[in-house]
């Protein structure tokens, strides 16, 4: 018998097979009404989720809290290193051990890569990686795929462009791995300074997954079903003029996409990489995507904590 979604932790999207992802997407669909408060649930009544956010977060933290509370559970935790005992010099390992004693599961965000993996090896409660540096952000990927499936009723057969900072943007790293499990055409659109890292390309090539690298957004905008946009950050460039020049080439506005048959997604926060004139168009799926975090994270918490 195949054990679908038989996981103790969610550390990297690479641990999941396609059937696991399809299964959790189906589970998220079933929880839509609870996510919208049209139905109530006490599935996780009595359970406590620990939130260890060493790095700031708005959507990820709030949507985990909302998801836990919608399922009848509760949350404890901190949202930056300054207000936790880490500021006094306590190790991440000791902090996690303390949380293990208080909680039924832990959500961890940290600027250092590999923290969730490390903690999952030393504590016995489920660990969810909510972003580790430029590493992975697997639950974001699952809600991204959920958004695509909700929109197109399928993932196979689609043409999907990942746009912007592909070097440091952790959401696109996880997403590229996951899309590789489907029959999709992947376009990596970025300035040459911010190309998809070798680690990711190595794995895609090893698994015979084809992708196209492109610097010019205009060359692919007619071809794709999804534009998945990420922010190009100023701090990645030494020269401010260079940054401004490059950034302007990756801005999505109404003029660029008008008349095209595509949707625009973004893990948010956006600054100006998607112009506000896109907000009130049919192309905007980024706010829907932010809502979709709730049914997807509910489905994940239900699987891990129940």
């Amino acid at each position: 018998m195949v054990h679908i979604f038989n996981f103790n932790d969610i550390i990297t999207i690479k641990d999941l097979k396609r059937e696991d992802i399809d299964y959790i997407i189906d589970e998220a669909f079933k929880l839509e009404k609870v996510a919208k408060s049209e139905e109530n649930s006490d599935t996780l009544n009595g359970k406590i989720l620990g939130m260890m956010f060493f790095e700031p977060s708005t959507r990820t933290k709030l949507s985990f809290e909302t998801s836990m509370k919608r399922l009848g559970g509760e949350c404890i935790g901190f949202e930056n290193s300054i207000t936790s005992s880490v500021a006094k010099g306590e190790s991440i390992a000791d902090t996690a051990k303390m949380f293990e004693a208080y909680c039924d599961g832990l959500v961890i965000r940290h600027e250092i890569e590999g923290v969730s993996k490390f903690i999952s090896d030393i504590v016995n409660v489920p660990i969810i990686n909510a972003g580790d540096g430029a590493g992975q952000h697997p639950t974001q990927t699952l809600l991204d795929l959920y958004t695509i499936k909700k929109e197109f009723k399928k993932i196979d057969g689609l043409k999907i462009a990942l746009v912007g900072d592909l070097k440091y943007g952790r959401t696109v790293h996880s997403l590229a791995y996951a899309l590789g499990l489907y029959d999709v055409e992947m376009y990596f659109v970025s300035p040459k300074e911010l190309k998809m890292p070798n680690e990711i390309l190595h794995d895609l090539e090893k698994n015979n997954i084809s992708y196209y690298e492109e610097e010019n957004l205009k060359n692919i905008v007619d071809k794709v079903d999804v534009l998945y946009v990420t922010r190009i950050q100023k701090e990645r460039f030494g020269d401010i003029e260079e940054y401004l020049k490059i950034k302007s080439r990756y801005i999505i506005n109404k003029e660029l996409i008008n008349g095209k048959n595509l949707i625009v997604m973004h893990p948010l926060p956006r600054i100006d990489e998607i112009s506000q004139d896109v907000d009130n168009t049919k192309y905007n799926k980024y706010f829907e995507q932010a809502f979709n975090a709730v049914p997807m994270r509910m489905a994940i918490l239900k699987q891990l904590l129940k």
């Binding site: 010099g89 991440i92 390992a93 600027e111 590999g114 923290v115 490390f118 540096g133």
Partner: peptide
């Protein structure tokens, strides 16, 4: 070789 890797954090038992 990744400076941002947890294994390069001297404060942790790793």
């Amino acid at each position: 070789i990744n400076n941002k890797c947890i294994t390069n954090n001297e404060n942790e038992p790793i």
